[in-house]
Amino acid sequence: MSNGAQTVTVPHLGGSTIGYKLGKPYDPALPTLVMVNSFSTSVELYRPQFAHAGLGEAANLLAIELYGHGATRAAYEQFTYWDSAIANLQVLEALGIPRAFVLGTSQGGWVATRMAILAPDVIQGIVPLGTSMDYESQRSRDLGCWDGLDFCTPSIDALAEPVGDDWVVPGEFVDAVLGAGLGEAVTDDERAFWHTTYQQNYTGDAGRHRLRVSTINLRDRDGLHGRLDGVRCPVLWMQGTADAVYSVANAEDEIGRFSQAADTELRVVEGGQHFLSASDPDVVNAATVEFLGRWS
């Protein structure tokens, strides 16, 4: 189970237990900021946000773990990003939260966007960080984004066979994700923290399966270009110049595809890494407080 996560039950996928962390007791007088984690991480990705006094004073902070991640479990064995978007909306309903903003890091960015497409009356604004609205396309690679097929396929193949109860996620997998997400400047303490967290979240054959489906989702997801006109709320996209996965050029193209959004803005973060909420929390937190104040 994910460190620091509580769980709530929702009906999606045959009945699901969803891992979440609420920074403090829910205050209906404040806006709510849902935070959706990046690939194979957990609510722990948002430690810098939960620790930030200004953000905690400005909003109810609610991190929700996607299917395949942290403490989240489902009765069905297969899931997609659409399922996580639906489950997140059901978590809001279960917790009695009528409307929310959504911040999402990497894959969290396209889950945030899916939530806004599915429930435009519920989602007040989205803050995608270091993300893409495309599938893993040739267009994406031509604009300087990574080769997601090349990154994901070896792990999908390696995780294909059943394993015993003593299996834990390989350290090389964790290091590859940290390298892509945070670059070379990962401290020893941070690396050790994530190795421990991953080994708690991905153990035994069930853990192998969740990790494999999560990796398949990353590689084989559908693109959102044809659906982005379904986003009506304001969009603040933040993209780091040192992001090794998705490029500024891609973000510059895609921010213009939110044709029906109430407002769109792209902020480029000099030196920002892929997991921007973790690499540049001060910049992200300040911009998010401003965004919440403007649109809530």
Rank of each mutant, 00 (worst) to 15 (best):
S132M: 13
S132T: 15
M133P: 06
M133H: 10
D134N: 10
E136C: 05
S137V: 09
Q138F: 08
R141N: 13
D142Q: 01
D142Y: 06
L143G: 03
G144C: 00
W146P: 05
W146H: 14
D147H: 04
G148T: 04
L149H: 14
L149K: 14
F151N: 06
F151M: 12
F151E: 05
C152K: 04
T153Q: 12
T153V: 06
T153D: 11
S155F: 14
S155Y: 15
S155K: 08
D157R: 11
D157V: 12
A158Y: 03
A158V: 02
A158C: 02
E161D: 15
G164A: 07
G164P: 04
D165Y: 01
D165M: 01
D165K: 03
D166C: 08
D166M: 00
V168D: 09
F173S: 14
F173K: 09
F173M: 02
V174F: 05
V174M: 02
A176Q: 13
L178M: 15
G179N: 03
G181I: 07
L182A: 02
G183Q: 08
E184Y: 11
E184F: 01
V186M: 03
D188T: 11
D189Y: 13
A192F: 07
F193G: 01
H195M: 06
T196V: 12
Q199W: 10
N201Q: 15
N201G: 02
N201W: 13
Y202I: 04
Y202M: 01
T203P: 00
G204H: 07
G204N: 06
D205M: 00
D205N: 14
A206Y: 07
G207V: 00
R208K: 10
R208A: 04
R208W: 00
H209Q: 15
H209D: 14
L211N: 02
S214R: 05
T215L: 02
T215P: 01
I216A: 10
N217P: 01
D220S: 11
R221L: 09
R221K: 07
R221T: 09
G223R: 02
G223D: 05
L224E: 14
H225P: 12
H225A: 08
R227Y: 15
L228H: 11
D229G: 15
G230Y: 08
R232G: 09
C233F: 03
V235T: 11
V235A: 02
W237N: 01
W237D: 06
M238D: 03
Q239Y: 09
G240W: 01
T241I: 04
T241S: 05
A242I: 04
D243A: 00
D243L: 00
Y246H: 15
V248R: 13
V248L: 05
A249M: 10
N250Y: 11
N250H: 13
N250R: 12
N250L: 15
N250C: 14
A251K: 03
A251Q: 12
E252P: 03
D253W: 10
D253C: 09
E254Y: 06
G256T: 07
F258K: 07
F258P: 12
A262S: 08
